[in-house]
């Protein structure tokens, strides 16, 4: 996951690459397996930095050392407010939506309102690429004839909704603040890495397992077949009705996932890293 983050973060002339140079992080390389600890620290640094910048922007603080003038109660309220705001802003939907059209039988005719395959009928295409009604329509079904059909230069939409949504998507692509989207992505991935790191430091087995669960869509999306299989097997071993491990082994899998080299609380590290 960290490698995916680095691929996205340090792509071309992105901010993270710039930050790496400005803060002289020469040991950080794009290849995570070579410099794991440096990358991990850098990611933490960048995440903390952007979180603080976000707060400075919201509370209108000119420098990082400016102390806002507020009572301790107000400060606590502001802290809650700012944190909630950051999380809500960077939040990505983690649930997977499967479009219902994928579940239909393959041989269903997917075009036109009538959903019937009329042989030899002339069809017209809706200009909205995201048209949900079928994209191609029989002239008869939309009240057109070969004489009244729009010319090649003219645009045609099957409905007012398609016309409006096409307008919206056009204007949206011009108004997207790419820099902001990039920072949001960075923060989302950074925070995501941070909570996993905390779970490992505390050897919080149930949480680590839970994170494996929410990482599955990421593994599938980025074609990490090995981790998809590993994660799936791990989760299947102790959740639901299919749990097939004896209690002792289950306990071992949940709680024996980290190693504490230096002793003390909150200093566990990943077993595979050791």
């Amino acid at each position: 996951l960290m490698q995916d983050t680095m691929n996205k973060m340090c792509h071309k002339k992105r901010d993270a690459l710039h930050l790496k140079n400005v803060f002289n992080q020469r040991s950080v390389s794009k290849n995570v397996s070579e410099t794991f600890n440096y990358v991990s620290d850098f990611l933490k640094f960048v995440t903390e930095g952007y979180t603080l910048l976000f707060a400075m922007e919201m509370l209108d603080l000119p420098t990082l050392d400016t102390v806002p003038t507020m009572t301790s109660a107000e400060a606590e309220e502001a802290l809650n407010y700012v944190s909630t705001c950051i999380v809500d802003t960077v939040w990505n939907d983690v649930t997977v939506h499967i479009p219902s059209s994928n579940l239909k039988e393959e041989d269903t005719y997917g075009f036109c309102n009538c959903k019937e395959d009329i042989e030899g009928a002339v069809m017209i295409e809706c200009e909205n690429v995201a048209c949900t009604e079928g994209v191609w329509f029989h002239l008869e079904c939309v009240g057109l004839t070969e004489e009244t059909v729009p010319g090649e230069d003219e645009v045609w939409f099957c409905s007012a909704e398609c016309r409006n949504s096409n307008k919206r998507s056009h204007s949206a692509s011009h108004t997207i603040d790419r820099k902001f989207e990039y920072v949001k992505m960075l923060l989302w991935r950074g925070l995501s890495d941070m909570i996993r790191r905390n779970a490992v430091r505390q050897n919080d087995g149930p949480m680590i397992t839970l994170y494996w669960k929410c990482d599955l869509p990421q593994f599938i999306k980025h074609n990490h077949t090995k981790y998809t299989i590993l994660g799936h097997r791990l989760i299947a071993k102790f959740t639901g009705l299919n749990c097939f491990l004896p209690k002792r082994l289950r306990q071992d899998l949940i709680w024996n996932r980290t190693i504490n080299l230096s002793g003390g609380r909150g200093t566990n590290i990943e077993t595979d890293l050791v």
């Binding site: 995440t47 903390e48 979180t51 603080l52 707060a55 990082l64 802290l79 809650n80 700012v82 944190s83 909630t84 950051i86 999380v87 939040w91 983690v94 649930t95 925070l191 995501s192 941070m194 909570i195 905390n198 839970l210 669960k213 929410c214 959740t239 639901g240």
Partner: peptide, 24 residues
């Protein structure tokens, strides 16, 4: 404190994530 802000954001992020995972 700066560390409080980062920690608080982290906690809220964690809470929001665990709320959304089905079958917990």
């Amino acid at each position: 404190r700066k560390a409080d802000l980062v920690m608080m954001t982290d906690i809220l992020y964690h809470e929001k994530l665990t709320k959304e995972i089905p079958g917990r």
